[in-house]
Structure formats: structure tokens, C-alpha cells
Simulated scan of single mutants.
Amino acid sequence: MRRIDVIGIGFGIFAAGGIIYLILQYAGLDSISAGIWSQALLVGGLVGWLLTYLFRVLTKNMTLAEQMRNYEDAVLQKRLEEMSPEELEKLQAEVEQEKRQSAGN
């Protein structure tokens, strides 16, 4: 994310708070109540966003983690494509031997 994007998002949140405040005043709340409710809504939104971010971190469903998985899968696929049939048979035999050993334990 670029610096200008962060500034734009910050300005947008600031403007949203002002708009919510004006809407609440128009709806009949006095200025103090409208200010409290607009702050409560903005803080609630921030906490909600933070919870979704923490959920993505804990489930490793973030962009960087996905890019790393895709890269690792692509590297492994390329290595498998470059292997000769004899190397593939040897690798398959090793995998099956490990499966039998882990099933025996």
C-alpha cells in the first residue's frame, strides 16, 4: 500500500465520522449525543476490522502466506516436471515406504 493510499483511507474515515455525526444530528440527536454515537460507531467499525484481520492472521489466509504457498507449489511442480521417469519412480517408492513406516507406528 502506498503512502497516498493510507492518507486517503485516513481522510475517508475522518470524513465518514463527520458524515455520521451530521446524519445523527439531522435525525434529532443533540450535538453531544451525536458525537458520542458517531465515535462509538467508528470505534466499533475499527474493532470489527481488527477482528477480521486477526482472524486472517490466525488462519494464515493473508496475501503473503497465499503467495508463498503458490510459489512453493509452483517450484515443486516445476521440479517434478523436470525429473526423469526413473527419479519419479524412486521418489514414489520413498514416499510409499514412509507411508508404510508411519502407518506401522
Rank of each mutant, 00 (worst) to 15 (best):
M1I: 11
R2P: 00
D5A: 09
D5W: 02
D5C: 04
V6R: 08
V6K: 07
V6G: 10
I7R: 01
I9Q: 03
F11R: 02
F11M: 15
F14A: 09
F14G: 12
A15R: 03
A15K: 03
A15E: 04
I20P: 00
L22R: 05
I23H: 06
I23W: 06
Q25W: 07
Y26L: 10
A27M: 12
G28S: 01
G28M: 05
L29M: 06
S31V: 04
S31E: 08
I32N: 10
A34G: 06
G35L: 04
I36D: 14
I36W: 13
W37P: 00
S38P: 00
Q39L: 14
Q39I: 14
A40W: 00
A40L: 06
A40Y: 00
L41M: 08
L41N: 06
V43C: 07
V43D: 11
G44D: 04
G45Q: 03
G45F: 02
G45C: 03
V47Q: 05
V47C: 03
G48Y: 13
W49G: 15
W49F: 15
L51Y: 01
L51H: 01
Y53Q: 07
L54E: 11
F55P: 01
F55Q: 11
F55S: 09
R56D: 14
V57T: 08
L58T: 05
L58G: 10
T59M: 08
K60R: 15
N61A: 10
M62G: 08
M62L: 09
T63A: 12
T63V: 09
L64C: 05
L64N: 14
A65D: 13
E66C: 05
M68Y: 10
R69E: 09
R69M: 05
R69G: 05
R69N: 09
R69F: 04
N70K: 12
N70I: 10
E72T: 10
D73N: 13
A74E: 15
A74F: 00
Q77M: 08
Q77L: 10
Q77T: 13
Q77E: 14
Q77S: 12
K78P: 05
R79P: 10
R79M: 12
R79C: 12
L80E: 15
L80K: 09
E81F: 00
E82G: 05
S84Q: 12
P85K: 01
E86R: 04
E87C: 03
E87V: 05
L88G: 08
E89S: 06
K90C: 02
K90Y: 04
K90H: 07
Q92W: 01
Q92C: 01
A93V: 00
E96F: 02
E98K: 08
K99I: 15
K99A: 13
R100K: 14
R100W: 11
R100H: 11
Q101E: 15
Q101H: 12
Q101K: 14
S102R: 11
S102E: 14
G104Y: 10
G104F: 13
